[in-house]
């Protein structure tokens, strides 16, 4: 192959002109995730939105979840629960969640303490469930690869592969995992994977009379959940852990742990 000085300069000039005509962004190095989203990945990314103003603590979500997902109804284990927060004027926080709110809050007493309504400065309910983190600590610690994140962002447990060691139960900063006494494996909220993969909503979302719980596709900008997360003031639980939760809360209070 030969190339005269004249040809080399000519081609060099043409190449330079083409490069100069391109926008600067075309020279940017993309991460694999960025490249994937740029070419349009058809997959969905499930996300959840909880409106704590709307929640009334009725607990129908907890009941529906336990029955839908075959979680032993009378044992003190649950995939989702609702916490009651009562903050009194002397700045004390009272929290309780009797039976995970499976039967609703049947008592005006909080944790056995009677609180005069006049002393309450704020009080509200906070539904909790698996945050389906983008960086799930529970998956990272699994020694056998039984906990994993699906392509659409849901963290699941492989019941045939789990050895029941319980590392993931300890690793979850939100305490959403528990040991399933029937299957003898770690168990957790699956975002009702059997329902959302059929185009249904989760059992808790369907059961909630007040629309306090919503599930949606975070990759679809027209999804009402995505819109709300993008435009409204939302927060996540324990952001400082770096787990990147995908359950967003409207009206989250600093007292909520």
């Amino acid at each position: 192959m030969s190339c005269s000085r004249r040809d080399f300069l000519k081609k060099g000039l043409v190449g330079g002109a083409v490069a100069a005509s391109l926008p600067l962004s075309s020279f940017k190095f993309l991460t694999p995730a960025e490249a994937k989203s740029a070419v349009g990945d058809p997959a969905v990314r499930w996300g959840f939105l909880v409106d704590t103003y709307k929640c009334t603590g009725c607990g129908f979500c907890v009941k529906a979840c336990k029955k839908e997902n075959d979680v032993p109804y009378d044992l003190p284990i649950t995939r989702t629960w609702v916490e009651r927060y009562v903050i009194t004027k002397d700045d004390e926080t009272h929290v309780d969640s009797p039976n995970g709110d499976r039967d609703g809050f049947k008592d005006t007493k909080i944790d056995g303490k009677t609180i005069d309504p006049k002393d309450i400065s704020k009080a509200f309910f906070v539904p909790k469930l698996c945050n389906q983190c983008d960086n799930p600590a529970c998956v990272q610690v699994c020694p056998v690869g039984a906990s994993y994140q699906t392509q659409d962002g849901v963290v699941l447990v492989d019941r045939k592969w789990c050895i029941g060691c319980g590392y993931c139960i300890m690793a979850c900063p939100y305490g959403v995992r528990f040991f399933h006494p029937v299957y003898k494996v770690a168990d957790k909220c699956t975002f009702c994977y059997h329902r959302i993969s059929k185009g249904m909503k989760t059992a808790c979302v369907d059961a909630c009379p007040f629309g306090a719980r919503q599930i949606g596709d975070l990759k679809n900008p027209d999804d009402p959940v995505t819109k709300a997360i993008l435009t409204e003031r939302v927060a996540v639980l324990k952001d400082e852990y770096g787990t990147k939760p995908q359950v967003f809360y409207i009206g989250l209070d600093e007292n909520v742990r």
Binding site: N135, Y148, D158
Partner: peptide
């Protein structure tokens, strides 16, 4: 994308999809 988070038995996803719907 991730060796840490996406290392699993692919058929397990189908196991979960097959879970019966009650409600």
């Amino acid at each position: 994308d991730s060796f840490t988070y996406n290392f699993y038995r692919a058929d397990s996803v189908n196991d979960w999809k097959k879970f019966p719907v009650s409600y």
